[in-house]
Lab assay of single mutants.
Amino acid sequence: LHIEINVNGLRIELHNVSEELAERIREILEKVDDREEARRLAEELIK
């Protein structure tokens, strides 16, 4: 499954994740104000 999410102008592509996991990642990242911090957090979440 390939999912693309957009959060605060940051486009993140997720591969091989469930829709539920992608939604949780999006919800978490929406709470982060700083774009660079959101990017770093996204990288950690999808490892």
Score class of each variant (00 low, 15 high):
1 L>V: 12
1 L>T: 12
1 L>H: 13
1 L>F: 09
1 L>W: 07
1 L>Q: 11
1 L>S: 12
1 L>M: 14
2 H>T: 15
2 H>I: 15
2 H>W: 09
2 H>Q: 07
3 I>M: 10
3 I>C: 02
3 I>A: 05
3 I>V: 11
3 I>S: 04
3 I>K: 04
3 I>G: 03
3 I>R: 03
4 E>D: 06
4 E>Q: 12
4 E>C: 10
4 E>A: 11
5 I>T: 01
5 I>K: 00
5 I>C: 03
5 I>Q: 01
5 I>S: 01
5 I>F: 05
5 I>P: 01
6 N>S: 07
6 N>V: 14
6 N>G: 04
6 N>L: 13
6 N>F: 06
7 V>M: 07
7 V>D: 03
8 N>V: 03
8 N>E: 06
8 N>W: 01
8 N>C: 10
8 N>H: 09
9 G>N: 03
9 G>Q: 02
9 G>S: 02
9 G>Y: 01
9 G>L: 01
9 G>F: 01
9 G>K: 01
10 L>Q: 10
10 L>Y: 12
10 L>G: 03
10 L>R: 02
10 L>T: 13
10 L>F: 11
10 L>K: 04
11 R>T: 15
11 R>P: 05
11 R>Q: 08
11 R>D: 04
11 R>H: 15
11 R>Y: 13
11 R>A: 11
11 R>L: 15
12 I>N: 00
12 I>K: 00
13 E>S: 10
13 E>N: 09
13 E>C: 11
13 E>A: 07
13 E>H: 10
13 E>K: 10
13 E>D: 08
14 L>E: 00
14 L>Q: 00
14 L>S: 01
14 L>V: 07
14 L>A: 06
14 L>T: 01
15 H>Q: 09
15 H>M: 08
15 H>T: 09
15 H>I: 12
15 H>K: 07
15 H>D: 06
16 N>H: 08
16 N>T: 04
16 N>V: 06
16 N>D: 10
16 N>G: 14
16 N>C: 06
16 N>A: 07
16 N>R: 04
16 N>S: 06
17 V>S: 03
17 V>R: 02
17 V>L: 10
17 V>I: 13
17 V>K: 02
17 V>C: 03
17 V>A: 11
17 V>Y: 07
17 V>E: 02
18 S>V: 04
18 S>Q: 05
18 S>I: 03
18 S>P: 10
19 E>Y: 14
19 E>W: 15
19 E>P: 14
19 E>F: 14
19 E>C: 08
19 E>A: 15
20 E>V: 09
20 E>M: 08
20 E>H: 12
20 E>W: 13
20 E>S: 10
20 E>A: 13
20 E>Y: 12
20 E>K: 08
20 E>D: 11
21 L>F: 13
21 L>H: 05
21 L>G: 02
21 L>Y: 07
21 L>M: 13
21 L>N: 03
21 L>S: 04
22 A>E: 03
22 A>P: 00
22 A>M: 11
22 A>G: 04
22 A>S: 05
22 A>C: 03
22 A>W: 11
22 A>Q: 05
23 E>P: 02
23 E>Q: 14
23 E>V: 12
23 E>I: 13
23 E>S: 11
23 E>Y: 14
24 R>I: 08
24 R>D: 02
24 R>A: 11
24 R>E: 05
25 I>D: 00
25 I>E: 00
25 I>C: 01
25 I>M: 04
25 I>G: 00
26 R>S: 03
26 R>T: 05
26 R>L: 09
26 R>I: 10
26 R>Y: 08
26 R>D: 00
26 R>F: 06
26 R>W: 07
27 E>P: 01
27 E>G: 08
27 E>C: 08
27 E>R: 13
27 E>F: 11
27 E>W: 12
27 E>M: 13
27 E>D: 13
27 E>S: 11
28 I>V: 09
28 I>F: 06
28 I>A: 11
28 I>Y: 05
28 I>K: 04
28 I>S: 04
28 I>T: 06
28 I>G: 01
29 L>W: 05
29 L>V: 06
29 L>E: 00
29 L>Q: 01
29 L>G: 00
29 L>D: 00
29 L>S: 01
30 E>T: 12
30 E>P: 00
30 E>H: 10
30 E>C: 07
30 E>F: 11
30 E>N: 12
30 E>G: 09
30 E>Q: 13
31 K>N: 14
31 K>P: 02
31 K>A: 13
31 K>D: 08
31 K>Y: 10
31 K>H: 13
31 K>C: 07
31 K>Q: 13
32 V>S: 07
32 V>C: 02
32 V>G: 06
32 V>M: 10
32 V>E: 06
32 V>P: 02
32 V>Y: 12
32 V>W: 08
33 D>W: 13
33 D>F: 13
33 D>E: 15
33 D>V: 14
33 D>P: 13
34 D>C: 02
34 D>E: 04
34 D>M: 03
34 D>A: 04
34 D>Y: 03
34 D>P: 03
34 D>K: 03
35 R>M: 15
35 R>G: 10
35 R>A: 14
35 R>Q: 14
35 R>W: 12
35 R>L: 15
36 E>R: 06
36 E>A: 06
36 E>L: 08
36 E>I: 09
36 E>P: 03
36 E>H: 09
36 E>T: 08
36 E>N: 10
36 E>M: 08
36 E>D: 14
37 E>S: 06
37 E>A: 09
38 A>P: 00
38 A>K: 02
38 A>V: 10
38 A>W: 10
38 A>D: 00
38 A>F: 11
38 A>M: 11
38 A>E: 00
39 R>A: 11
39 R>T: 08
39 R>W: 15
39 R>F: 13
40 R>Q: 09
40 R>Y: 05
40 R>A: 08
40 R>F: 05
41 L>C: 03
41 L>E: 03
41 L>T: 04
41 L>F: 05
41 L>M: 12
41 L>I: 13
42 A>E: 01
42 A>D: 00
42 A>C: 03
42 A>K: 01
43 E>T: 09
43 E>M: 14
43 E>K: 05
44 E>D: 11
44 E>C: 07
44 E>F: 11
44 E>A: 11
44 E>I: 11
44 E>N: 07
45 L>N: 01
45 L>C: 04
45 L>H: 03
45 L>W: 06
45 L>R: 01
45 L>M: 11
45 L>F: 09
46 I>S: 05
46 I>D: 02
46 I>P: 00
46 I>K: 02
46 I>M: 10
46 I>R: 02
46 I>L: 14
46 I>E: 02
46 I>Y: 08
47 K>C: 03
47 K>V: 12
47 K>T: 13
47 K>I: 14
47 K>G: 12
